[in-house]
Design a protein around this nucleic acid. Sequence first.
DNA 1: ATGATAATGAAAATCATTTTCAATTAGGAT
DNA 2: ATCCTAATTGAAAATGATTTTCATTATCAT
Lengths: 129, 129
Amino acid sequence: MKNTKQRELILSELRKLKTHPTAEEFHKILKKKDNNIGLCTIYRNLESFYEQGLIGKINTKPAKYDGDLSSHSHIRCISCGKIHDIFFSVPINKVEIEKLGYKLQGYKIEINGLCSSCAKTKKRREKNV
Amino acid sequence: MKNTKQRELILSELRKLKTHPTAEEFHKILKKKDNNIGLCTIYRNLESFYEQGLIGKINTKPAKYDGDLSSHSHIRCISCGKIHDIFFSVPINKVEIEKLGYKLQGYKIEINGLCSSCAKTKKRREKNV
DNA sequence: ATGATAATGAAAATCATTTTCAATTAGGAT
DNA sequence: ATCCTAATTGAAAATGATTTTCATTATCAT
């Protein structure tokens, strides 16, 4: 694997963010630093970083990426799709997993709720929760 | 909402399954009972049942649907994508959620691991974990 | 510096899902 | 039971996100 400036930019800039951008949102952000960077390069590298376990990925549609690997979960507003970090630990029962013959690799908790601003202005529910 | 035979078929047949079919897999199954049923009808109704909270949905790509609403989680093989039910409870900290101003609606735990048969025959990792 | 190899960006392709739309059907009113 | 209306269906086209292809460019070990 080669160390390109795009790859470095993608990883370092994602790590600076406290938000969880989609590939397209992130593309807009990165264009400010490298106006020529392509959206597919971003997709490619985000996926590759995710597969290497260097960043997190949230299963929304479009997917959102997370530069923060510290152990935390996300709560997602079922109305506006906004995502907040939420910190708590969950005891995963390894025994149960091993009984099924699986080797645990990792887990994600996705919590859905209604955020306060959407609770006021009742909007219709977003898709792909 | 009208009670069509397609709608009834979709819900009753999904509830009979112990597996978690994708819309397309489910379409093949249902064609045996109603050869004319369309894939988009299946998509439409599965989504609608899911939004009504009548069935479960697993965030894979393609999505998988689950007729079993009893409280359980899924473990997914990172290599072949197979999904097993896994039963254990997780204490979700409501206080933390309310502190952020959210009203809890539900949560899912997605566990990733390597199943025993893939552990033997090392295959490449599937996407969209 | 050179060459081999991998990564890039643009465009096209793909895949899952959703929308459109004309035809059909369900279910209440008659 | 028949009629009427609105909702649902299936087929096809459209969409949106992501991935692939491919010619060009950049990286890095030598």
